[in-house]
Amino acid sequence: MTGLKIGFIGAGNMAEAMIKGILASGIKAELAVSDSSVERLEVIRTVYGVEAVSKDNKRVSDFADIIFLAVKPQILSVVLRQLKGRVRDKLIVSIAAGKTIEYIESILGDEIRIVRVMPNTPALVLSGATAVCGGKSALDEDLETVRSLFSSVGSCVIVEEEKMDVVTGLSGSGPAYVYQFIEALSDAGVKMGLTRADATLLAAQTVLGAARMVIDTGIHPAQLKDNVTSPGGTAICGLHELEKGGMRAAVINAVEAATEKSKELGRKK
């Protein structure tokens, strides 16, 4: 992709992750950023060399062909009303959690090309998991453009919007589940005699390596698990304890509960 003009309204962590990813990927694009915080704008300007920074959202929207709405859900309506009538022929990409495409179209108009995105926090270290979906007027090439941009900060899939609550429950909330698992592994290592630093490093690297094996090999996780479990060995004994503790059911229940909560929050907005 070359010659893109990309604007970010909001300069928070996710916008910063996207800027970092775009620059690291070599995508040829001109960037502009707006935010109410002068401090955040200064970070974007000095750390990433983006000179086109402003407190004026309209200036960024007029500049850009692709506009990322990287603001908190509670102020999205204010930003959308600022942009109304100014974004015809532009692609709008919303990262505002819980805000549906229908909601955005109700303010901007359903003729506007809108793509909704659900990223997660590991995008900050270019290892995110993101899902995208398109509105009534979004073109296939719009979805591909957004998918390519978010692939610069990790992996990205295209889904139907009705699946976004599931995405929120799985990959959106999932880092919290994984952090708790890493903490539990580290606690176990400390209990059995390792230092906290060594236990945490080994636990985190084990999770990272196992995830990389799933992605790089394409082998089903169950088969990879079987490859580790020798007959009468240590791993099968540990797995038996996890099964007795209901780990599999607990994880499924966690994703289900988070999905239902996402639906509930969406109905309240």
Rank of each mutant, 00 (worst) to 15 (best):
L239E: 13
A249N: 13
S262M: 01
V166E: 01
F181N: 04
F181H: 01
N227T: 05
D187F: 03
P231C: 01
T234I: 13
M213P: 12
M213I: 07
D216G: 05
I219H: 02
K244V: 11
A199K: 02
L185C: 12
K261T: 02
I182R: 02
G233D: 01
H240K: 14
E241Q: 12
H240Q: 01
D226Y: 10
D198Y: 12
S171E: 00
K261N: 01
L185R: 10
T206I: 06
A257Q: 10
T234W: 05
R212E: 13
R212H: 14
T195K: 14
I252C: 14
G193S: 08
T234S: 13
V207D: 06
G245S: 04
L202N: 06
S262N: 04
A249G: 14
T195M: 07
G246L: 04
A258W: 03
L201S: 14
E256V: 14
A257D: 08
H240W: 00
G233E: 03
A188K: 08
G189Y: 05
M213C: 05
K191C: 10
S230G: 10
N227E: 09
G193L: 04
A235E: 00
G169K: 15
V178L: 02
L194S: 05
A204Q: 12
A254I: 03
L201C: 12
N253Y: 02
K191Y: 12
D216S: 10
R212I: 10
I219C: 06
T195G: 15
A249M: 12
V251G: 05
V255I: 15
T217Q: 02
V166F: 12
G209P: 09
I219Q: 10
A184M: 00
A249R: 12
S173N: 04
E183G: 05
L224K: 08
Q180G: 05
A258E: 11
S186F: 00
A235C: 11
D216H: 13
R212L: 11
D187N: 15
A211E: 05
A210C: 10
G189K: 01
V207M: 08
L239C: 13
S186M: 02
P175E: 09
D187A: 13
K225C: 14
L224I: 08
A199V: 06
T217P: 04
A199P: 00
D165L: 02
G245I: 03
T259L: 01
D165W: 06
T229P: 02
A204H: 12
V190F: 07
H220P: 02
C237A: 15
N253H: 13
A249Q: 14
T168S: 10
A211G: 15
E241C: 03
L208M: 15
G174Q: 07
T206M: 12
R248Q: 11
V251C: 05
V228M: 01
L201H: 11
V251H: 03
S262R: 06
L194C: 10
I252A: 13
V228R: 00
M247P: 05
G172K: 12
V214G: 03
A176V: 06
A203C: 09
G189I: 08
L242S: 01
A235N: 03
M247Y: 13
K225L: 14
N253R: 13
G233I: 08
A211K: 03
P175W: 09
E183F: 04
G238E: 09
V167H: 04
V251E: 07
L208A: 15
V228W: 04
T200C: 05
T229N: 04
R196E: 12
I182M: 08
M213F: 07
Q180P: 00
Q223K: 15
